[in-house]
Protein backbone atom coordinates (compact mmCIF):
# COMPACT_ATOMS: atom_id res chain seq x y z
CA UNK A 1 0.00 0.00 0.00
CA UNK A 2 1.53 3.27 -1.02
CA UNK A 3 1.92 6.27 1.19
CA UNK A 4 -0.89 8.18 -0.53
CA UNK A 5 -3.50 5.54 0.39
CA UNK A 6 -2.24 5.37 3.97
CA UNK A 7 -2.52 9.15 4.23
CA UNK A 8 -6.07 9.05 2.87
CA UNK A 9 -7.06 6.40 5.41
CA UNK A 10 -5.57 8.30 8.33
CA UNK A 11 -6.77 11.68 7.12
CA UNK A 12 -10.33 10.49 6.52
CA UNK A 13 -10.70 8.73 9.85
CA UNK A 14 -11.69 11.84 11.77
CA UNK A 15 -13.72 13.11 8.80
CA UNK A 16 -15.83 9.95 8.92
CA UNK A 17 -15.93 9.56 12.68
CA UNK A 18 -17.02 13.14 13.31
CA UNK A 19 -20.33 12.89 11.39
CA UNK A 20 -20.69 9.52 13.09
CA UNK A 21 -20.62 11.24 16.46
CA UNK A 22 -22.66 14.28 15.46
CA UNK A 23 -25.18 12.64 13.10
CA UNK A 24 -25.28 8.82 13.16
CA UNK A 25 -25.37 8.53 16.94
CA UNK A 26 -27.92 11.29 17.60
CA UNK A 27 -30.07 9.99 14.75
CA UNK A 28 -29.93 6.49 16.21
CA UNK A 29 -30.50 7.49 19.81
CA UNK A 30 -33.36 9.95 19.20
CA UNK A 31 -35.10 7.67 16.72
CA UNK A 32 -34.78 4.64 18.95
CA UNK A 33 -36.10 6.45 22.03
CA UNK A 34 -39.13 7.62 20.05
CA UNK A 35 -39.51 4.12 18.61
CA UNK A 36 -39.60 2.69 22.13
CA UNK A 37 -42.36 5.09 23.12
CA UNK A 38 -44.37 4.12 20.04
CA UNK A 39 -43.63 0.42 20.55
CA UNK A 40 -44.64 0.41 24.22
CA UNK A 41 -47.86 2.28 23.53
CA UNK A 42 -48.78 0.08 20.55
CA UNK A 43 -47.93 -3.09 22.47
CA UNK A 44 -49.95 -2.03 25.52
CA UNK A 45 -53.00 -1.16 23.41
CA UNK A 46 -52.90 -4.65 21.95
CA UNK A 47 -52.19 -6.26 25.31
CA UNK A 48 -55.16 -4.50 26.89
CA UNK A 49 -57.32 -5.43 23.90
CA UNK A 50 -58.73 -1.97 23.24
CA UNK A 51 -60.92 -2.84 20.28
CA UNK A 52 -60.71 -0.11 17.63
CA UNK A 53 -57.26 1.10 18.64
CA UNK A 54 -56.02 -2.47 18.35
CA UNK A 55 -57.16 -2.62 14.71
CA UNK A 56 -55.33 0.62 14.00
CA UNK A 57 -52.17 -0.76 15.62
CA UNK A 58 -52.34 -3.96 13.59
CA UNK A 59 -52.76 -1.88 10.42
CA UNK A 60 -49.76 0.29 11.30
CA UNK A 61 -47.55 -2.75 11.93
CA UNK A 62 -48.78 -4.44 8.77
CA UNK A 63 -48.00 -1.45 6.52
CA UNK A 64 -44.66 -0.52 8.07
CA UNK A 65 -43.27 -4.03 8.24
CA UNK A 66 -44.49 -4.77 4.73
CA UNK A 67 -42.77 -1.89 2.94
CA UNK A 68 -39.04 -1.18 2.54
CA UNK A 69 -37.41 1.33 4.84
CA UNK A 70 -35.81 3.00 1.83
CA UNK A 71 -39.23 3.47 0.21
CA UNK A 72 -40.57 4.97 3.43
CA UNK A 73 -37.68 7.45 3.48
CA UNK A 74 -38.34 8.42 -0.15
CA UNK A 75 -42.08 8.86 0.36
CA UNK A 76 -41.50 11.05 3.37
CA UNK A 77 -38.67 13.17 1.96
CA UNK A 78 -39.24 13.28 -1.81
CA UNK A 79 -42.94 12.44 -1.93
CA UNK A 80 -44.59 14.58 0.70
CA UNK A 81 -43.30 17.94 -0.60
CA UNK A 82 -45.63 17.52 -3.59
CA UNK A 83 -48.56 17.83 -1.22
CA UNK A 84 -46.96 20.71 0.59
CA UNK A 85 -45.27 18.88 3.48
CA UNK A 86 -41.58 19.77 3.42
CA UNK A 87 -39.31 18.37 6.11
CA UNK A 88 -35.64 18.97 6.77
CA UNK A 89 -33.51 15.87 6.20
CA UNK A 90 -32.63 15.15 9.82
CA UNK A 91 -36.13 15.41 11.38
CA UNK A 92 -37.50 13.53 8.37
CA UNK A 93 -35.05 10.70 8.99
CA UNK A 94 -35.87 10.66 12.72
CA UNK A 95 -39.59 10.38 12.01
CA UNK A 96 -39.17 7.58 9.48
CA UNK A 97 -36.75 5.59 11.62
CA UNK A 98 -38.90 5.99 14.72
CA UNK A 99 -42.06 4.88 12.92
CA UNK A 100 -40.28 2.01 11.20
CA UNK A 101 -38.43 0.75 14.27
CA UNK A 102 -41.52 1.29 16.43
CA UNK A 103 -43.47 -1.25 14.38
CA UNK A 104 -40.84 -3.96 14.86
CA UNK A 105 -40.24 -3.21 18.53
CA UNK A 106 -44.00 -3.14 19.17
CA UNK A 107 -44.13 -6.82 18.25
CA UNK A 108 -41.17 -7.56 20.50
CA UNK A 109 -42.81 -5.69 23.38
CA UNK A 110 -46.18 -7.34 22.80
CA UNK A 111 -44.73 -10.84 23.01
CA UNK A 112 -42.74 -9.82 26.09
CA UNK A 113 -45.86 -8.46 27.80
CA UNK A 114 -47.70 -11.67 26.98
CA UNK A 115 -44.87 -13.73 28.46
CA UNK A 116 -45.53 -12.36 31.96
CA UNK A 117 -47.75 -14.96 33.66
CA UNK A 118 -51.35 -13.73 33.86
CA UNK A 119 -51.50 -14.99 37.44
CA UNK A 120 -49.31 -12.11 38.56
CA UNK A 121 -51.82 -9.64 37.15
CA UNK A 122 -54.59 -11.39 39.07
CA UNK A 123 -52.46 -11.35 42.20
CA UNK A 124 -51.96 -7.62 41.66
CA UNK A 125 -55.69 -7.02 41.58
CA UNK A 126 -56.12 -9.18 44.66
CA UNK A 127 -53.67 -7.14 46.74
CA UNK A 128 -55.50 -3.97 45.74
CA UNK A 129 -53.51 -2.58 42.82
CA UNK A 130 -55.12 -0.87 39.84
CA UNK A 131 -54.52 -1.91 36.24
CA UNK A 132 -51.98 0.87 35.68
CA UNK A 133 -50.15 0.14 38.91
CA UNK A 134 -49.90 -3.52 37.91
CA UNK A 135 -48.64 -2.61 34.44
CA UNK A 136 -46.09 -0.11 35.68
CA UNK A 137 -44.72 -2.00 38.66
CA UNK A 138 -45.17 -5.68 37.84
CA UNK A 139 -45.70 -6.38 34.15
CA UNK A 140 -43.58 -3.78 32.34
CA UNK A 141 -40.37 -4.35 34.36
CA UNK A 142 -40.57 -8.08 33.67
CA UNK A 143 -41.50 -7.58 30.02
CA UNK A 144 -38.58 -5.22 29.60
CA UNK A 145 -36.24 -7.86 30.92
CA UNK A 146 -37.58 -10.37 28.39
CA UNK A 147 -37.55 -7.85 25.57
CA UNK A 148 -34.07 -6.51 26.31
CA UNK A 149 -32.00 -8.89 24.12
CA UNK A 150 -34.26 -8.63 21.04
CA UNK A 151 -34.55 -4.86 21.52
CA UNK A 152 -30.76 -4.60 21.68
CA UNK A 153 -30.72 -6.55 18.45
CA UNK A 154 -33.07 -4.00 16.87
CA UNK A 155 -30.95 -1.12 18.12
CA UNK A 156 -27.81 -2.63 16.61
CA UNK A 157 -29.60 -3.23 13.31
CA UNK A 158 -30.92 0.32 13.31
CA UNK A 159 -27.50 1.83 13.95
CA UNK A 160 -26.39 0.41 10.62
CA UNK A 161 -29.67 1.22 8.87
CA UNK A 162 -29.13 4.92 9.54
CA UNK A 163 -26.67 4.79 6.62
CA UNK A 164 -29.79 4.77 4.43
CA UNK A 165 -30.39 8.36 5.54
CA UNK A 166 -27.60 9.29 3.14
CA UNK A 167 -30.24 8.86 0.43
CA UNK A 168 -32.21 11.79 1.77
CA UNK A 169 -29.14 14.01 2.15
CA UNK A 170 -28.51 13.53 5.85
CA UNK A 171 -24.79 14.04 6.20
CA UNK A 172 -24.03 11.02 8.35
CA UNK A 173 -21.04 8.67 8.32
CA UNK A 174 -21.83 6.88 5.10
CA UNK A 175 -22.50 10.02 3.11
CA UNK A 176 -19.31 11.58 4.47
CA UNK A 177 -17.44 8.53 3.21
CA UNK A 178 -19.08 8.72 -0.20
CA UNK A 179 -17.89 12.29 -0.53
CA UNK A 180 -14.32 11.40 0.33
CA UNK A 181 -14.45 8.52 -2.16
CA UNK A 182 -15.68 10.88 -4.86
CA UNK A 183 -12.68 13.07 -4.22
CA UNK A 184 -9.97 10.44 -3.79
CA UNK A 185 -11.17 7.48 -5.92
CA UNK A 186 -10.29 4.99 -3.19
CA UNK A 187 -13.60 3.15 -2.67
CA UNK A 188 -12.20 -0.12 -1.36
CA UNK A 189 -10.24 1.13 1.63
CA UNK A 190 -12.66 3.90 2.51
CA UNK A 191 -15.81 1.77 2.47
CA UNK A 192 -13.97 -0.84 4.52
CA UNK A 193 -12.91 1.93 6.87
CA UNK A 194 -16.48 3.18 7.41
CA UNK A 195 -17.59 -0.42 7.82
CA UNK A 196 -15.04 -0.84 10.60
CA UNK A 197 -16.31 2.28 12.34
CA UNK A 198 -19.86 0.88 12.24
CA UNK A 199 -18.39 -2.32 13.65
CA UNK A 200 -16.79 -0.31 16.45
CA UNK A 201 -20.12 1.36 17.31
CA UNK A 202 -21.92 -1.98 17.33
CA UNK A 203 -19.22 -3.56 19.48
CA UNK A 204 -19.81 -0.87 22.08
CA UNK A 205 -23.56 -1.55 21.90
CA UNK A 206 -23.00 -5.30 22.29
CA UNK A 207 -20.88 -4.62 25.36
CA UNK A 208 -23.59 -2.35 26.78
CA UNK A 209 -26.14 -5.08 26.11
CA UNK A 210 -24.26 -7.64 28.19
CA UNK A 211 -23.81 -5.13 31.03
CA UNK A 212 -27.52 -4.32 30.87
CA UNK A 213 -28.50 -7.97 30.89
CA UNK A 214 -26.41 -8.64 33.98
CA UNK A 215 -28.13 -5.80 35.81
CA UNK A 216 -31.60 -6.91 34.75
CA UNK A 217 -30.87 -10.52 35.63
CA UNK A 218 -30.55 -9.85 39.33
CA UNK A 219 -33.95 -11.31 40.19
CA UNK A 220 -33.62 -14.40 38.04
CA UNK A 221 -33.03 -17.80 39.55
CA UNK A 222 -29.41 -18.18 40.50
CA UNK A 223 -27.23 -21.10 39.52
Amino acid sequence: MDQRVIDIILDSFSKILLPGLTMTIPLTVISFCLAMVIATAVAMVQFANVRILKQICRFYIWVIRGTPLLVQLYVMFFGLPSVGVVLDPFPCAVIVFAINEGAYCAETMRSALESVPAGQIEAGYCVGLSYWQIMRRIVLPQALRTAFPPLSNSLIAMTKDTSLAANITVLEMFMATQRIVARTYEPLVLYIEVGLIYLLFCTVLTKLQSIGEKRLNRYQRQG
Partner: peptide
Protein backbone atom coordinates in the same frame (compact mmCIF):
# COMPACT_ATOMS: atom_id res chain seq x y z
CA UNK B 1 -57.07 -11.64 50.01
CA UNK B 2 -56.41 -14.50 47.63
CA UNK B 3 -53.83 -17.27 47.78
CA UNK B 4 -53.27 -19.02 44.45
CA UNK B 5 -52.36 -22.55 43.56
CA UNK B 6 -49.29 -21.30 41.70
CA UNK B 7 -48.39 -18.64 44.31
CA UNK B 8 -48.31 -15.90 41.64
CA UNK B 9 -45.66 -13.92 43.45
CA UNK B 10 -44.38 -10.83 41.65
CA UNK B 11 -41.19 -12.24 40.12
CA UNK B 12 -39.44 -8.87 39.94
CA UNK B 13 -39.91 -8.15 43.64
CA UNK B 14 -38.27 -9.57 46.75
CA UNK B 15 -40.26 -11.47 49.35
CA UNK B 16 -40.60 -8.31 51.44
CA UNK B 17 -41.56 -6.17 48.43
CA UNK B 18 -44.18 -8.75 47.48
CA UNK B 19 -45.74 -8.34 50.88
CA UNK B 20 -45.54 -4.54 51.03
CA UNK B 21 -46.63 -3.79 47.45
CA UNK B 22 -50.35 -3.89 48.24
CA UNK B 23 -49.80 -1.64 51.25
CA UNK B 24 -47.49 1.00 49.78
CA UNK B 25 -48.98 1.18 46.29
CA UNK B 26 -52.50 -0.15 46.75
Amino acid sequence: AFVFQNYNLFQNKTALQNVTEGLVIG
